[in-house]
Design a protein around this nucleic acid. Sequence first.
DNA 1: CTGAAAGCGCTTACAG
DNA 2: CTGAAAGCGCTTACAG
Lengths: 336, 336
Amino acid sequence: MTIKDIAEISGYGLGTVSRVINNKSGVSDKAREEILRVIKESNYEPNSNARLLKMRDGSVIGVIVKGNHNFLFADIIEKVQSAFSDVKENVITEYIDEDGDEVEHALRMIRDKNLKGILFLGANIGFFDERMNQVDIPCVILTTNAQSLKVGKISSVSVNDEEAACEMISYLINKGHVNIGVIGGTLSENQISFSRYKGCEKGFRENQIPFRPKTNYVPCRYSMDAGYEATKVLLDKNPNITAIFALSDIMAFGAIRAVNDMEIRVPEDISIAGFDGISISEYCIPRLTTIRQDTATIASRGVNLLLKNIHYECESEHYRAPFSLIEAESVIDLNR
Amino acid sequence: MTIKDIAEISGYGLGTVSRVINNKSGVSDKAREEILRVIKESNYEPNSNARLLKMRDGSVIGVIVKGNHNFLFADIIEKVQSAFSDVKENVITEYIDEDGDEVEHALRMIRDKNLKGILFLGANIGFFDERMNQVDIPCVILTTNAQSLKVGKISSVSVNDEEAACEMISYLINKGHVNIGVIGGTLSENQISFSRYKGCEKGFRENQIPFRPKTNYVPCRYSMDAGYEATKVLLDKNPNITAIFALSDIMAFGAIRAVNDMEIRVPEDISIAGFDGISISEYCIPRLTTIRQDTATIASRGVNLLLKNIHYECESEHYRAPFSLIEAESVIDLNR
DNA sequence: CTGAAAGCGCTTACAG
DNA sequence: CTGAAAGCGCTTACAG
């Protein structure tokens, strides 16, 4: 069933049918009605390949998500999608591997789907090189700051990871913790975990507490089992730690389990703090003291920014979404 | 940059360039080499819309996933994707809403992407009506049994949910539990939760223990907070329950939290069991006694079945993947 | 308000 | 081994 069939059955020409399909003006009510009826009856759906091949101006917004298993992103995606659907924008969401090259993916998507804008959920700034100069549609990166980027027209909405991590370290120190362990991502400069790690260093410095990465830091990937293993390694090296700051909730969740398995109590013997504020943090035992990223703001600001950039010519912006330190049950006050 | 540009720059014709791009025979080494060089230099990538518009035989496999937040599916997807990439199959994965109509989505995807087969991750059998008769490419449903389907050529790989739930109920009864609560999905016939619920009924019947849905069953959606709320409702109605069977781990996770918040201990005062065997179940406190679905088998069998159906004409098959009852820490033996 | 025609970027017989 | 031509299903000026 093609547009040609619909034209023949309805007795109208190709052009008229096409106008009806695309809800364009310049069609008599009678024609519109009849054609619509034929379309419904024959269960016709336009071939979007032919369509996209023809249409010059992008009509769809692309969302590129890094990682299948990311709870924080899953949360943001839902909000992003509902925001776009509120304003009747069509969205195509694609997931790529956690370590995948989102720019390569974006380039292909732009040409294939005829995009008018892209939202990146998670990004490794290192991938955004000269290739981005080929891109002439607005791009917005969520959860990673893109201020330092020199290429293309890219905006971003993110929490100030460095400041947030710094605040958590200060909080732990205020609660009387001195020997604090940190577990987190690898320290490549372009990763979010790098900012968080920098924030930790700053937190220790500001509070005049020495931080010794050799004994108090263990890198780990963003997963429960990585958090579990890293915690064991950390406590093996340094059994006197009184608090662990996991650079993401999912790692903290693994850390809680590891500590329990060593027959150490959380928080009585060891306090644990996380980062992200995903739903697990509210249900685990004990409830996790963490940095909650304001995903509602990240999503709505991101969507608004992208829409603004699509409709008007404007400079790129880098917005900082709020975060808050959630005091739950997993950190104890040693001063009491 | 189009294929025409490449032809001009390289000095060859459109046809030859196309053959090189598609790695077809009938091109001199010299031509192939030169054209490949030009393609690389000019950073050309073929427009897949034009391509798909032309190509008659499907070249891509579609994967349709129901729900963004499903941990079990996230696990299976990873295995499915790596299995397909091992045999160099191209895959397009799309996520639809948990309550969305996967058949409508499949229909659109078939026409747009020129698919040669579809893998459904999660499905509501109720949607698979006459529309599926239009579909002439192989389909395989994962995690939901499709034996009862009369339309189209649809295979499936799933755990026997009814049997598994029955086994868990028997297990709980063996451990001395009589007043057992069940929380789970709504009881629409086409949902997985319906089979699991039926399995519970069977389990009680076989063990001659009465099951009173009014006091011992509370429906709930597949989320932590739904599990949390359902548990509160359940214990409110029936405070003497000694065990709760949550029809999915994610609900069980919420249930553990709810019980803790009522200052009841798990498992000492109330035992809790789950279903699925997602990674959370291994890390929560206490570790969850659950039914583990063999996701490796589901994924590999599903992929093999689809590939077989694509390459050979064969009858639809409905394979049952193994499950196992994992005895962890969340269920106590009342006989001791 | 309507239809005939051109063309989007590609693939695939066809003829050489 | 190679190129010219037809055509995939659509949209969009253009002329009426």
